[in-house]
């Protein structure tokens, strides 16, 4: 399988502080990678490096064989809603349409019929079509998260990158986000950052544990029916004894 994102010996320093050290990571086509780690462990920094919002202090990042800046139009980014102004006057549809901006470069006086059609289709996929005329201020945390996923999908990305999609969401809505990602995974690669270990091990194929340095694990199905009863859903568990070289899959 083709490699889509590759990080070779990447380090990032913020002033004197080392945020990331010697990171090696290969993401394969159609892979679902989870990145977990403590707060301040460099998870968001890793995403921003892949998106080309930050430049590594040393090492090399390639996305589809290009630099992150060249390739970022092929990436779909889902930020945390908590960082937004929750009183911003904007409707759901207007927000999702933002994903169509910048595709033709320069001025864009109006959204084309094709833009509108793509937006309608991704809103159907993410189950927010009936909310399209609602203001963002009137939505729940889970609904906002799905709007941001829809906006990222509207740019027709080849890889979806999500930053803490279950932060500030109650478990039931987290479950909806999980099943949505599971459906999307048929079509695109996904990189998901979360501090929520339970969430991440349910949906991903491979987990990267990040706390300044990075260690990858494969996930294996849990046979223990007690665990399933405990969570009420099928689980995968991270087997920390399986040490795979980066990029390798079980």
């Amino acid at each position: 399988m083709a490699t889509t994102i590759s990080l070779n010996n990447v380090s990032f320093h913020y002033g004197e502080r080392t945020i990331l050290e010697n990171i090696d990571l290969q993401l394969q086509e159609k892979e679902f990678l989870g990145v977990v780690g403590p707060n301040g462990g460099g998870k968001s920094t890793l995403l921003k490096l892949i998106l080309g919002l930050l430049t590594p202090t040393s090492g090399e990042i390639r996305v589809f064989g290009q630099t992150p800046r060249q390739a970022r139009s092929r990436l779909g980014y889902v930020p945390q809603f908590a960082t937004f102004d929750s009183a911003f006057p904007i409707t759901v549809r207007q927000t999702v349409l933002q994903g169509r901006l910048g595709r033709n470069g320069g001025f864009q006086l109006r959204y084309s019929a094709q833009d509108q059609a793509v937006v309608t289709s991704v809103m159907e996929q993410t189950d927010i079509l009936e909310l399209q005329q609602r203001p963002m201020t009137a939505l729940s945390g889970g609904q906002r998260q799905r709007v941001l996923i829809a906006r990222a999908l509207a740019s027709e990305p080849e890889i979806l990158l999500l930053d803490e999609p279950t932060a500030n969401i109650d478990p039931e809505h987290g479950e909806n986000v999980f099943s949505l990602l599971h459906r999307l995974h048929d079509k695109i690669s996904i990189v998901l950052i979360s501090h929520d270990m339970g969430f991440i091990t349910r949906c991903v194929q491979r987990v990267a544990c990040l706390n300044r340095t990075l260690v990858c694990h494969a996930t294996a199905p849990v046979r223990n029916s007690l665990m399933e009863r405990l969570y009420g859903i099928p689980l995968s568990m991270v087997d920390h004894s399986t040490h795979l070289s980066p990029g390798e899959q079980s």
């Binding site: 998106l51 080309g52 919002l53 970022r72 139009s73 990436l75 980014y77 930020p79 937004f84 102004d85 911003f88 904007i90 927000t95 933002q98 994903g99 901006l101 910048g102 470069g105 906006r151 740019s155």
Partner: peptide, 13 residues
């Protein structure tokens, strides 16, 4: 977009 989410605006080019 620049007012709502400048980071996303950068990614959209």
């Amino acid at each position: 977009l620049v007012c709502f989410d400048p980071e996303f605006a950068v990614i959209r080019g």
